[in-house]
Nucleic acid binder design. Sequence first.
DNA 1: CCCATGCGTGCGTACGCGTT
DNA 2: AACGCGTACGCACGCATGGG
Length: 298
Amino acid sequence: MDIQSLHIFKVVAEHGSITKAAKELNYAQSNITTRMQQLESSLQTVLFYRHNKGITLTTKGDLLLTYTDKIFRLFEETRQVMRDEEEPQGPLSIGSMESTAAVHLPMFILRYHSTCPKVDLTLKTGPTAQHIEEVLNYKLDGAFVSGPVQHPNLVAKKIFREKLVLVSSLLSSYPLELENIGNLTLLVLHKGCSYRQKLESWLHKEGIRPSKVMEFGSLDALMGCVAAGLGVSLLPLSIVQKYSHLEEITHYSLLEEFTLVDTFFIHRADNTFSTPLLKFIELFQEEKSSITCDEKRS
DNA sequence: CCCATGCGTGCGTACGCGTT
DNA sequence: AACGCGTACGCACGCATGGG
């Protein structure tokens, strides 16, 4: 097993084909076949199911692919650290909840980009559970998630606490009262969204079964439908304020137990920071302290 | 169309030997 | 001891071909 064989393995696994991998890498197909046989032999395991439409990874192959991702990421990080750069550069993948990305991150990302123009930053929005998994699997460098987060392989820093409010429209056919909620359509983001979970636990506690639930992939679409009077949702107050131009929107406070939500920034605890991630954390901490000062002032 | 196998070719490395 | 040269070997690679 050597780094070149692992690279070839990664390409074969990604293409699901030895022939396609050979074309991609500019090698003869037979060469790739031999290299993969040697890799299997050196690891004393079978990495592929061979069939007439290509190859499929075995469980061990799948496992090796996970390790390969880790090895190459570590390899890249090592190269960057060894280069001893003053200016961070290279890829940085950050995950974020939809709402955090929409409200809290745009200005910070602008600042990060102007400070570290050579970093290739990717911001991926999605639910907390998915982001935790992706940070652990080295697919993301860090993520903004809804807390609390407790995992031995993760470091989680509390970033801010938000208040959730029930959002409705003045155009809604039912006045927003507890006894009416069951008649209203619940507008929610995808499964795994922490605000949705809070809303569902609150409804469960109140013994309310919503008549209909509609899922949305984006905040814009969800807020548009809330404004049109389609239904109600539970969202951070900051989001509602961001959409204050939608004049029909109105919001209501719930019991504190269901309305306070903490956002954490998580990264792996294995101390293999890339320079771009270190700078990201450093800048965000500066940003956070300035936000805190502003909040204290106001 | 895919992967596996056999075979020939070229390159890099290790080693031995002679020369300086 | 250091250096240069020739040779043998291992390895990576591609071509041709066969089987599924």
